[in-house]
Design a protein around this nucleic acid. Structure first.
Lengths: 129, 129
DNA sequence: TCAAACCATCACATACATGTGAGGGTCAAT
DNA sequence: ATTGACCCTCACATGTATGTGATGGTTTGA
């Protein structure tokens, strides 16, 4: 598919699809006319990229971790340098921290909402006896 | 405590403590000399702010949700306008999405690391018979 | 009293993801 | 052949969280 379709299917501005390419996150082929050509699998990949960006990871890191997420594994283990592995471990731990923080705060919001709702419904109950 | 101590205890540059104040996330008192004065509780609060920022939430939203997270609740329920509640619900859901995305990807990284480690240890085993 | 170590405000700079638009090809349908 | 809807590159702009430094007041200890 071309950039317009991918853009629509992922809800991502064309500008950003080109930007992700520039950052090395995706590698579309080109037709003779120079148009980019994306294959089906990139729909999921782009959504994944957007999710990670939204969760606070910079493109630099996303680029590093993306290849490890592919199944079946295309990365040869020999590609994994010790520094790379250290980076991945570090990033795994940071993600865990983020998850913990987000979960705690989300739960607090949810609880707050529950309390407010309860309060309002009991208001309603008492005001409509 | 003054800004320097808070900065050290939270690992946050002074610049950012002033920035968070400017964005309405914290409200330090002032001494006669104009120095900011933070109380103990702000250590946790600042760490919470940093965690949320790191998880991709903008200060604008953090400012909105922070007051709901305090226990005991100081917010009067009447302060919660319908728009505010809608925002909170929306944000709660977005956080859930972030958590899902982060968890999925973190688990994939962890699994990759496990596979690589296994592979390397079996390398070692076969190369040292 | 002087220096060092704080604090203040202000302003300019940077990185990153993103918006926007100009100037110009390609292609399909009329 | 022309129009409209695509696509291209390039470049400049914006918002947000940061870094950095200038300029100057306050406090503390030698």
């Amino acid at each position: 598919m071309r950039i317009g379709e991918l853009s629509e299917r992922t809800g991502t501005p064309r500008r950003l699809l080109r930007y992700y390419e520039e950052q090395g996150l995706i590698n579309p082929d080109r037709c003779q006319n120079g148009y980019r050509t994306y294959d089906e699998g990139l729909v999921d990949r782009v959504m994944q990229i957007r999710g990670l960006l939204d969760a606070g990871l910079p493109t630099r890191l996303i680029k590093q971790i993306l290849p490890c997420l592919d199944k079946p594994r295309v990365i040869h283990f020999s590609d994994a340098t010790p520094e790379m592995l250290a980076t991945l471990e570090q990033e795994r731990d940071r993600m865990t921290e983020r998850i913990t923080c987000l979960t705690r705060n989300r739960d607090a919001i949810a609880e707050y909402l529950d309390v407010v709702r309860d309060n309002h419904s009991s208001d309603a109950a008492t005001s409509t006896p």
